[in-house]
Every structure is written in structure tokens, then in C-alpha cells.
Amino acid sequence: MHISISAEPIFYLWNFPVTNTLLISTAIVLSLIIFSFFLNKRLKTIPSGIQNIIEYILESLLNLVDSVTGSREQSKKFFPLVASIFIFVILSNWVEILPGLGTIGIKEINNGKEVIKPFIRSSSSDLNVTLSIALISVFSVQILGITAMGIKKYSKRFFVNPFKKPYVVGTFVGILEIISELAKIISFSFRLFGNIFAGEVVLIISLFLLPYFFNILPLPFLFLELFVGFIQALIFSMLTLIFLKVGCTEIEE
């Protein structure tokens, strides 16, 4: 049994490592795109079947966003990013529930040891994925903040003239703000990565603890991971939403 922190490359395209997590996340993205095309074609005024479920999910997400922003107009601005993050993250978290996790893959001899490169690996357990979403989230906060109040007002948050009213304190707080933006990226990506990677490790280990059919150990962990996956997706999207809200609110001087 071998668990690697980084995602295993399945094959190389002109020196570009196509990892299992890239394949999984691409599959998620593609299936979501196909699904939305499919739904878009069959959208009806009087909903039925799958449209009901989608409307229910989107409406509850929108209400959640509303409860934070307090205005429908702003909610509509934030909603696409928040909802996309939620949907993508929850789906990539739940990939680890699929059977075959960490067990079905390519066998390889590495440093004299037999190593399996699994096909299925939750895309959230790759730092590349979580970091990319975190980057998008934090950069969207900056961009939406600038469009909401203009670059001049927005930059006041970070760059404060040391010879004006709060003097050096204001400047120092500005520097702290910049650091906190960077910290947001780190905390976003490592929180999700850590949670899901740990969950995956637990699931893989619990698979090998008892032999054959006596192994009921993964079952409680599967439920746990279902819950953790949901919670992490919610945290990621809610934090993004709150940062967006804070970023679009002018600072009182």
C-alpha cells in the first residue's frame, strides 16, 4: 500500500503530466456541462422531474446567499461563483465515495516497490485543484470589489498613507490586509486539501485492515466522508461568499 500526497500522473502528453485528479475533475466539469446543456434545452415554465430538483437546489443556494448579502441584486452577482464552487467542490469531494478508490489503477515498479497508480482519486485531494479554486475565489473577491467601488477606493484597503490620520497604524493594517489575502489562499486550499486527503487515507487504510468480506470498517467512514464532503463544500462556498460581501463593502473612515 502506497499513498502519495501528490496526484499520480496516469500518462504524459508531450511532457505534460495528466494526473488522475485532472482526469476526474475534467470528467466532473464535462458531465456538469453536458448536464446543463441537456437541462437548458428542456427548460419549461412549469417544471417537472429533474428541473424541480435543480430549481430546488439553486433556490436554496440563492436564499443562502441572500441571507448573507441581504440584497437580491448583490446575490445575483455573487451567486454564480458561489454556486459553482459549491457544486464542483461537493462533487469532487464525493468522488472518494466511489468504489475502486485507491485500488484500481496501473501497477508500477518504483524504487523496487510495487506501486498502484489509482484511476479514481478525489480531485479535492490534489493541492493543484484546491489551490486553483482558492485563487479564483480570492481573485474574484478583488475584481468584484474593484468593480463595486472603483480601484481608488478599493486600494485604500491595502495602501494607507502613513502621514495621514491613523498614521503608521493604518499603513500597518493595510500590510496586514495584503498578508491576510494571501493567507486566505493558503487556508482555503489547505483546509479542503487536508480534509479530503485525510478522508481518503482513512478510507484506503480501513479497506485493508480486515480481510475480505469481514471488512465493514469503511462503512461508517464512508458516511463520515459523505458528511465531511458536504461540510467542506459548504465552508468553501460560504467563506467565498463572506469574503465577497466584505470585499464589496466600503470601509468606514
Binding site: 500526497i5 501528490s6 503530466p17 456541462i33 439553486l58 459553482s84 489551490l131 485563487l135
Partner: peptide, 28 residues
């Protein structure tokens, strides 16, 4: 050591941006 590769990072960013765009246009 954690497996961060800028090429993969860019690929994932493109992935997610595409998802965001398409979902916005065709679903939300």
C-alpha cells in the same frame, strides 16, 4: 513536495473557469 505543478494549476483553473462560464450561461 505537495505536488503543486504550475501546468496542472493552470489546467485546473481553466477547467473551473470553463465550468463557471458554462454553468452561468446555460444553467443559472
Amino acid at each position: 513536495k505537495l505536488g503543486v505543478d504550475w501546468r496542472l494549476l493552470i489546467a485546473q483553473i481553466i477547467n473551473f473557469s470553463l465550468l463557471l462560464f458554462i454553468l452561468y450561461k446555460f444553467l443559472y
